[in-house]
Design a protein around this nucleic acid. Sequence first.
DNA 1: CTGGATCCGGCAGGATACTG
DNA 2: CAGTATCCTGCCGGATCCAG
Lengths: 104, 104
Amino acid sequence: MAIRDTMELLSGKWKIQIIGALMQKGTLRFMDLLREVDGIAAKMLSKELQELEINELVRRTVCNTKPITVEYEITTYGKTLEKVIGEIAQWGDEHRKRLFRKAK
Amino acid sequence: MAIRDTMELLSGKWKIQIIGALMQKGTLRFMDLLREVDGIAAKMLSKELQELEINELVRRTVCNTKPITVEYEITTYGKTLEKVIGEIAQWGDEHRKRLFRKAK
DNA sequence: CTGGATCCGGCAGGATACTG
DNA sequence: CAGTATCCTGCCGGATCCAG
């Protein structure tokens, strides 16, 4: 089933959020992502980024600055996920509004 | 972040697939879902369905037949997820095609 | 700064058996 | 048929320390 394929690529607690951050902000360094994706640990960020890179959703570029910095950005292929993630974000947004309405 | 809200509701290995099945087929009984959602165990199906019911994405109806049967269906609120899940399924579909193209 | 190595606890989730 | 109870396991992911 197609849904399984998608969810497998996006498995893990953080991948969608990472992609979401990169989609919003464009190119980001490791440190930026660490700040942007709230609550993630360096090890997890590293691991999730590797998996995203393997699946060609994210491109990793090492800059020979001193000290080394690394930039991450969405690939053109990764950008095909934009619609999906956009929908997810939007739905969550309206879901929140709904909860707020019910609260009072 | 909105994405977190969405993914929390849809957390677990099976929820999206369950919703997907219900979206396609309409109302389904427990047994039907067990067959429809390939690979899921009864315990998991039961648990995920409960969580979906709590979040008002799915409605549970007990029919007093003999023996008892229970029907599940997407709520109108759950149907607002249609676009999201549709996008996921479609993307997975094209992702598969892409993999196939690269394979040869 | 960017990560790899290690250690570790919790819990998601599978198998099986049982109940109303 | 529609679950619940129980047990067991892997591995996800957090904390911490180390290295280039």
